[in-house]
Design a protein around this nucleic acid. Structure first.
Lengths: 157, 157
DNA sequence: CTAAATGCAAATATTTTGCAGGTTA
DNA sequence: TAACCTGCAAAATATTTGCATTTAG
């Protein structure tokens, strides 16, 4: 089922309403790639309808999160970032501390790690809800350094 | 070398000054365990000297971060959390989304994961600078659910 | 004595909330 | 038409900054 259909169905089921604002915000989420801030969404939304307020964007994002259509992650920046789920399914986010680029990575590569957290610590990690700071290959090659944090100096030896 | 000695030495080297406020803040960081917010630090600092302002706490934390004596992580809460480095060395933080508890975990368990990020994506992760959301064993057992986010439903199957 | 640090207050920045009026089902 | 949703404005929260004064070296 397409994302919009899920959205409409879930709205109906829960007694919520389909408004033009919500449609526009959902469509904007479709056209961006990677993680975006509420402000970025708002800017794009305003190209379509200039009167839509950022509070409506926040409220819609909150709603979409509740319906599991959108995921919110805390990067190390000031602003939260959001993204549409369900196209590629859940995945990890690698966030470059030098250039800010976000790289999607398969959750598979964290399988051992996930397992060890569960067996060794009784902890059930929500890895799909996480962004990993570090340096992307380009920035690492060019010798760029993180704009914040302690960097990626290979603490594991 | 003790943490305070490193601090004093680094301050001298860089032309910074050792003030009573800075000593108090550093001592408070020693006595707390796990990740603490600037506000929590400030509250404890004020038990010792009531006039110290929270802006001084922020400025000192920033300085300590620069000297690599303190690490700052973004949890999924609103406030940043800080902790003293160098006692146990760098480690991972497991943050329970239900009760807020922070569990320290060995970096070792992320070795495979780290390796795969490097070889598979050319990404150099800063895992010691990261907190992992999820559910702690107690909360998982009691059926508690995350106060935010998508939870820990085992997306890896 | 001088540059650096502090406390205070005000500014920023992001996100949330109250409410009157408009809209969906 | 009745509950829901929106835009606006203001509030709340966390962090940063400007500045006069104090203080460490």
């Amino acid at each position: 089922m397409a994302c919009e259909q899920v959205f409409i169905q879930q709205l109906r089921e829960r007694g919520f309403r389909l408004t033009p604002q919500r449609e526009i915000i959902l469509s904007v989420l479709h056209e961006v790639e990677g993680l975006v801030t509420a402000e970025e969404i708002h800017r794009r939304v305003q190209r379509i309808s200039t009167t839509i307020d950022i509070s409506t964007v926040y409220r819609t994002l909150e709603l979409l999160e509740e319906l599991d259509l959108v995921s919110c992650v805390d990067t190390s920046e000031a602003q939260r970032r959001y993204e549409l789920l369900g196209i590629h399914g859940p995945h990890l986010h690698l966030v470059c501390q030098a250039c800010g680029r976000v790289i999607a990575a398969e959750l598979e590569i964290a399988r051992d790690f996930d397992e060890r957290l569960r067996t060794g610590y009784g902890f059930q990690p929500a890895l799909d809800h996480l962004s990993i700071p570090g340096l992307c290959s380009t920035c690492a090659a060019s010798g760029a350094s993180p704009t914040q944090g302690r960097g990626a100096d290979g603490v594991l030896g």
